[in-house]
Design a protein around this nucleic acid. Sequence first.
DNA 1: TTGTAAGCGTTATCAA
DNA 2: TTGATAACGCTTACAA
Lengths: 329, 329
Amino acid sequence: MKFNIKDVAKRAGVSISTVSRVINSSKPVKPKTKDRVLEAIEELGYRPNAIARSLKVKHTQSIGIMVPDIANQFYPEVVRGIEDVANMYEYTIFLCNTDLDYEKELQYFTELEEKQVDGLIFMGNLISDALAKQMADAGIPVVLIGTQHDEMPSVTIDNAKAAKDAVCHLIQKGHQRIGIITGKMKDPLMGKARLEGYRQALQEAAISWRSELVVEGGYRFKSGYEGARQLLMLDEMPTAIFVASDEMAIGAMRAILEKGLRIPQDIAIMGFDNVDMAGKVYPSLTTIGQPMYEMGAIGTRLLTKYLQGEVVTASQVVLDYELIERESS
Amino acid sequence: MKFNIKDVAKRAGVSISTVSRVINSSKPVKPKTKDRVLEAIEELGYRPNAIARSLKVKHTQSIGIMVPDIANQFYPEVVRGIEDVANMYEYTIFLCNTDLDYEKELQYFTELEEKQVDGLIFMGNLISDALAKQMADAGIPVVLIGTQHDEMPSVTIDNAKAAKDAVCHLIQKGHQRIGIITGKMKDPLMGKARLEGYRQALQEAAISWRSELVVEGGYRFKSGYEGARQLLMLDEMPTAIFVASDEMAIGAMRAILEKGLRIPQDIAIMGFDNVDMAGKVYPSLTTIGQPMYEMGAIGTRLLTKYLQGEVVTASQVVLDYELIERESS
DNA sequence: TTGTAAGCGTTATCAA
DNA sequence: TTGATAACGCTTACAA
C-alpha cells in the first residue's frame, strides 16, 4: 500500500518527471495536468521518499546534535532552541547523548556522518583531537555551543566576566567573606574561567584570597551540598557563597537550610546558569542567566547560514548573560 | 575528498560487490582480499553512505520520537531512556517537539514518514483521529508512552490507582481535610484519572467530598501556586494537598511557604511524577514516582521487538509506580 | 510544457 | 570466492 512516483505518474497519465516537477514546484507545469497530478497524489496518499531524494540531491535536511546528557537540567532548554530554529529551516534533528565520553562522541559522529547529516551542533567539553580531525575530514559544518575551538564557529558567554559580575554583586551587597564552590578544575570554561572571575572580583575589591573558602565541585547537586557543608564547618563561615552551577547551588541551599540557617540573611547564595528550577525553589535563586534557548537558537541559525552558503561575519559569537537577582542574595 | 564504494573497489583491485561483502560481512570473502579491502577503506577514510544503503534495504535504522516539549521537566528523563536503548539496538532518533498541537503532530509525522523512519515513539495527550489514521496508513509501528489508544501498543502507569494510593497515604498520616490540585479536566489520564483516584480514596475512607477542596490546575508551576493560594483562602484550610504534578506541587509549596506556613507540619504536600527537582527542593517532595527512564527504555524495547518481527505478548504494558516518601508529608 | 533516460551509492541476484 | 548488473525512488539534463 506504499506508492512511489511511478504509481502516481501512471495514475495521472503523465511522466514521472512532471510528477516530480509538481511536487517540488521546480518547473512550470500546465495547471490542468498539475491538477491531475495533485489529484492522483491525493487519491493514492502518496508521500515522496526523502531518502531517495537525498541520495540524488546530496543533502538530507537533517542535522545532528550531540549533547552530554539531555536529562541534565541545563540542556533541554538549549535543545529546544535548536529544534525550533532547525524546524523553521526545515531540518530535523538527530539527538545523541555522549555522556562526555570521547569514545562515544567519535562513534556517534561516525554514525551521523554515514547518515549524511548536513551539519552538526556540538555541546560538551573540549573537543578531542581525534574528533576535531574527523570533523575536518568529513567536511561537515559544525557549530559549538558552550565550548570553543580555534577552528570552529561557536556560541558561548564570557564565563570569567560573568563570574566576576556575580561575585561583585555579592561584594556590593556588603559581603567580604565569600566562598566559592567551583566546577571541575580540568574544565577550562565552566571550571577554571568561573574561578578566575571570582579571583578577579576579589582582587579588584582588595579582598584577600583565602584558600579555605574555595572548594572544588562537580556541577551536580550532591557536590554542591557537600561543598557547602565543608564551608559551613569553617571557624569563620562565609557570609555568601558563589556556586558555579545552579544545581550545585540548590544542593548548597539545602545544606544551609538543614543547619537552620537562613538564606540570604545568614548566608547569601548565588548560582550560575538560570536553570528552570532556579526560579522555582524557595527561596528562589539569584543567578547568572545564560540565555540557553538563545544559545541553541542562535547556534543553529549560524549553522544554517553555513549550510546555505551565506557569508557569516562573526563565527565566534559570545552572547550576553544576565544577572538575575532573586531571593537568595 | 569523499569516496564511495567504487573508489575503494578500484583501489583494492576488486569489484564493488566484494567491498560490499566485507563491509557488511554478508558473505565469505577470502582473508587476503578482505585485508586488501580493509586497507583501502582505511587509506581512503571511506565511510559507507547510509542513505544509499537505506534506499536499497528499505529501512533506515532511525526512529522518530514526538514529545510535547523537551524543556518540560518530565520528558528529558524518558527521552534519555529511549535514546539509550535505541542506541543499543543501533537506531538513531529524530527528536520532535509538538507542543501538544495536533497540527504540528501531523506535520511532523508526515516529515518522519517521508524520511522513512522505521518506527515512532509518541508522547502526548490523546491521539487525534487524523493522526491515528495517518499512522495506520503509513504502516509505521508506533508505541505510545504515557498515553493510550485502543489499537496501539503503549506503556503507562495506572494513574487512578497511583493517585488513590497517594491520597490514602495522606489519610493514613491522619489527614481528613485533603485538597487537590488536578490536571486538566479534558485530559483523561493525568487529569481525570488522578482526580478519580482522589475520589476513590476519600470514598473508601468515608470522607465526604467537598467541592471547595478541588481546584483545577494545568501542570505548570504557576497553576500550582495559584491553586494553593485559592485553597489557603478557605475558611477551613486543608491540612494536606495532593497535587497532580510535581511542578505544580512545587508551586504550591511556594504559596504555602510564603504565607509563613510550615510543610508538612501545617500543610502536607504530595506530588506526582518524581521529576528530578522533587528530591532537590527543600523540603523535599513526597511524590508518586513514575519510572520515567524505564518508560522510555521499555517503550523503545517494545518498539524494537515490532521492528525485528519478534512476537510481542503484552502490547499494553502498565508499569509499577512507587510512592516516594520524603519531607513534605 | 512534457517525456526519456542517466545516475545518486548501495545491495543482492545470478553467473562464472 | 568473486564480478556484472539490475534494482531502490528520486531529480535533472537534454530532447522533443
